[in-house]
Amino acid sequence: MTRPDPNQVTRVGVVGAGVIGGGWAAHFLGRGYDVVAYDPAPDAGDRLRRIVDGAWPALEDLGLAEGASPDRLRIADSMAEACADVPFVQESGPERLDLKQRLLADLDSVAPADTIIGSSTSGYGMSEMQRACARPERTVVGHPFNPPYLVPLVEVVGGQKTDPEAVTWASAFYTAAGKSVIEMDVELSGFLANRLQEAVWREALHMVANNEATVEQIDQAMTEGPGPRWAFMGPCLTFHLAGGEGGMAHMLDHFGPSLESPWTRLLAPELTTELRDRMVEGCEREADGRSTAELIAERDRKLIAVLRAREAV
């Protein structure tokens, strides 16, 4: 099989059909692709179809590609079947390095020579995952944000043995598939968005652990404060505006000394049983009896509204 132009791909493989893999399958189906999926779990097919069915109303609301249909999903009986005759495979296996290495090596052994293999890993570098691959040059990271069928971002980066052309092709494919692509310059632990998200998460855990804020207050602080701005303007440009006419230069010159103030605690706090229980109880209070399915539906509905509003402005 000769690798096609990224804009001409019509069929993709998905290996690993959990929350992320299922979200990828829903995204690709919504964009009008044929999807062949494989997961070794006995109930994987039924679970995947439930994920797709749950995502479909949001995809319809957002706008389906011509010909898009959940009927274009096929459950494969083997990894080799999922990889046959597809130019691209999205791997979304469990986040364990030894398993990722073995899974990528297995994919590499059964996928056609020209097939690009993208991994949904949220933290491992491709250099460490591709070590057992016979053809590591076609392996790339394609790190999404959950749910992949709604959140636009995907971070793409290769490993030390990845052919730069594979990264370029994967980035073009993801773009054609409707994603917002960051083609990273270097491998970075946790990638870009996770690193930023993790900093906020650690601060939240510290504030709860030290009785400085509740779970509800932290979430309100984000959704009613930085969150609306960050939907369309990142922290750097936001602080550029905080400098007024002088921009970022004035902001750094004026507020720079305060950056050394001990406001933050970027080291993770000890995850004690007490902290764990308080986080769980706080989230249960916020959920207020709503099931996970209800919260997902609410999240998807509101995400679509934000995406539409952002597009409008």
Rank of each mutant, 00 (worst) to 15 (best):
D53G: 08
G244V: 13
E281V: 04
A58C: 11
A193Q: 01
S120M: 12
T139W: 08
G23F: 05
L59Y: 06
V19W: 10
E128A: 05
R3I: 01
R102G: 03
D253T: 14
S78V: 13
Y38D: 15
A25S: 15
A287C: 15
P57T: 05
L295R: 09
L266E: 12
R74V: 08
I116H: 05
Y174I: 03
C236E: 04
G243E: 06
G243F: 14
R102I: 03
S171K: 03
D71H: 09
A17P: 04
N194Q: 04
R131L: 15
E187D: 08
E81I: 04
R49N: 03
E216P: 13
A111V: 05
E216R: 14
S78K: 10
V186M: 08
T10I: 13
S127V: 05
G289W: 05
T238K: 05
A41V: 12
P4W: 01
T121A: 08
I51L: 14
G190Y: 07
A293Q: 11
D46M: 04
L237T: 00
A76H: 08
L73R: 04
M251E: 14
P152V: 10
L192S: 00
C283R: 09
D163S: 06
W24H: 15
P147H: 10
V200E: 14
T223I: 14
R285P: 09
V52M: 00
Y33D: 00
G21T: 07
S69T: 03
A213H: 13
D114V: 05
R308V: 01
A177I: 04
T10M: 11
M79P: 02
R72Q: 10
N194R: 07
G54H: 06
G256W: 09
A221L: 13
R229E: 00
Q220M: 12
S78Q: 11
P6K: 00
L59Q: 04
A297M: 08
L259A: 13
D163C: 04
E270L: 12
D253Y: 11
G63M: 09
S69P: 02
T273D: 15
R74P: 03
A58Q: 07
E216S: 14
R310A: 10
